[in-house]
Computed example of a mutant assay.
Amino acid sequence: MERFALLFDVLPFAATGFGIPQYLPQITKLRRTRDPAGVSWSWATLTCVNNAAWFAYFASSGYWTALVPSSAATLLAATVAVLLTRLGRAGRRPAAGVGAWTVVLAGAVVVAGIPGLGTVLTAASIIQVTPSIVTAYRTRRPTGVSVGTWLLVLGEVSCWTMYGHYRSDPRLIALGITGITASLLMLARVQYTTKRGYRPLPSE
């Protein structure tokens, strides 16, 4: 049993390894190609906001190893959002949606403290990944999507799913399952369009 416990205790470190660099492939691709096709500005911005909130939750819950990937994700997702803004992908309506969600997170803390924030964060992953999936599937050729980023996301959330089951933390489980589903859908979309003959730009 102790061996299994040690194995599960290593999962946050593995998640950290996947999490820290996960948005670098997307940043590199946008800089090299200036091709934002299929990449959602709302997804990048919500990722920044949500990871800042997760940072507060992890710190209050004592998940110290999770602080590094959440802070890295906040910074790098913000970089993706800035690049997409420069490429003309931002808009008033998406910005209003992100602003409203930020108010919800802040309100949860004011009303119910960190436990309230944790409850709201259970739905955060769904709200975060939905724009990325919708944008990719509405785009005939999502050539701007980085496969590398979504493979790293898949690796990280898989670790958190297993760790969440180990710690009986429904918030981590919800985060993990939603992230796994989103990652597989995004990778499937890129793979499908590639097989159909819509070749993505060389930048992975």
Rank of each mutant, 00 (worst) to 15 (best):
M1P: 09
E2L: 15
E2D: 15
L7T: 14
D9G: 11
L11W: 05
L11N: 04
L11R: 06
T16V: 12
I20C: 05
I20F: 03
Q22P: 02
L24H: 00
K29C: 02
K29Q: 11
L30W: 01
L30I: 06
R32A: 11
T33Q: 06
A37M: 10
A37Y: 04
W41C: 05
S42C: 13
S42G: 08
W43C: 04
W43G: 01
T45K: 03
V49W: 04
A53P: 11
A53E: 13
A56Q: 12
A56R: 13
F58C: 12
A59Y: 10
S61K: 14
G62R: 09
G62D: 04
Y63Q: 08
Y63M: 11
A66V: 09
P69E: 01
S70R: 07
S71A: 15
A73G: 08
T74S: 11
L76S: 13
L76F: 10
A77S: 13
T79N: 04
A81D: 01
L83A: 00
L83H: 00
L84A: 08
R86E: 12
L87T: 03
R89W: 08
R89H: 11
A90C: 05
R92S: 05
A96V: 12
V98F: 07
G99C: 05
A100L: 15
T102H: 09
L105A: 06
A108L: 13
V110P: 03
P115H: 02
G116I: 08
G118M: 11
V120W: 09
L121N: 06
A123S: 06
A123Y: 04
S125H: 06
I127P: 01
I127Y: 03
V129F: 14
V129A: 09
T130Q: 07
P131N: 11
P131Y: 08
I133A: 09
V134M: 12
T135I: 10
A136P: 05
Y137L: 14
T139V: 09
R140A: 05
R141Y: 07
P142R: 03
T143W: 00
T149S: 14
T149N: 12
E156T: 08
V157D: 04
S158T: 13
C159Y: 02
C159G: 02
W160A: 10
T161F: 15
M162V: 15
M162C: 14
Y163Q: 12
Y163G: 10
Y163D: 13
Y166H: 06
S168I: 14
D169H: 07
D169V: 07
D169K: 02
D169L: 06
D169F: 11
R171P: 08
R171Q: 14
R171K: 13
L172M: 15
I173E: 09
L175Q: 15
G176L: 03
I177D: 14
I180F: 00
T181C: 04
A182H: 01
A182S: 01
S183K: 03
S183Q: 08
L184D: 09
L185F: 09
M186A: 09
A188D: 12
R189K: 12
V190K: 02
V190S: 04
K195G: 14
K195M: 15
Y198N: 11
P200C: 11
P202E: 13
S203Y: 01
